[in-house]
């Protein structure tokens, strides 16, 4: 019995030492990790809301959690929104930053994270030689965010060959994210109307 206590204590001391060491490392790396995330979000926002002055993008928060972003013009009128859309693809959850104008049209989008099948689903981010933006996502621009579908489902978006699931997931996630955005905006007391095409 005494033996077990002694062994248990030894193990505990070692674990506490390890945890303390890691806590030190974590406190050093955390600011960097946070900064990386912040930078990624900002970069995505500049793609989702093209030609926007980063200063005039506001995050609408609920506590710590960002519900959506809004872009205001000089008269503090909201001219565009951005939101994070999530959809289950083939092998991962695809997260996308999507920008829409007040009439609900997509003005820009950027995939934040996905681990789809290399060579197939990952083509949602593929940039063809000599181009500057991903061809698949470009198809979404100027289309109503509440009404998107791939060709196989009767829409206009050309799927990636061999990756219909990823393509469809992206389209559906934008619709879902947009519907959520409308609800969020409507629930705000400011009550900025958004002409909705997704009802």
């Amino acid at each position: 019995m005494k033996d077990i206590v002694k062994l248990g204590l030894t193990l505990m001391v070692i674990t506490v030492l390890a945890a303390a060491g890691l806590a030190a490392v974590y406190s050093v790396t955390k600011p960097r990790i946070d900064a990386q995330r912040q930078m990624e979000t900002e970069r995505a926002l500049t793609v989702a809301l093209p030609q926007a002055d980063p200063e005039s993008i506001q995050a609408v928060k609920d506590g710590e959690e960002v519900r959506y972003y809004q872009l205001v013009d000089d008269d503090s009128q909201v001219v565009a929104y951005a939101f994070v859309a999530r959809g289950t693809g083939y092998s991962s959850v695809i997260e996308t930053m999507v920008g829409v104008d007040t009439s609900g049209r997509v003005i820009g989008m950027k995939v934040l994270s996905q681990t789809e099948t290399p060579g197939l689903g990952t083509k949602v981010e593929e940039i063809r030689y000599g181009e500057t933006d991903p061809w698949f996502q470009r198809q979404f621009i100027d289309k109503p965010a509440g009404d998107l579908a791939v060709k196989a489902d009767g829409g206009e978006i050309v799927s990636i060959t061999g990756a219909t699931i990823s393509s469809r997931a992206l389209a559906n996630s934008v619709i879902g994210g947009y519907k959520k955005l409308i609800k969020e905006i409507q629930s705000d007391s400011s009550g900025l109307a958004l002409k909705s095409e997704a009802q």
Binding site: L22, V25, Y26, T29, R32, I33, Q36, E40
Partner: peptide, 8 residues
């Protein structure tokens, strides 16, 4: 942790 910070 190091990888998340330096090679995201």
């Amino acid at each position: 942790l190091a990888m998340a910070g330096f090679m995201p």
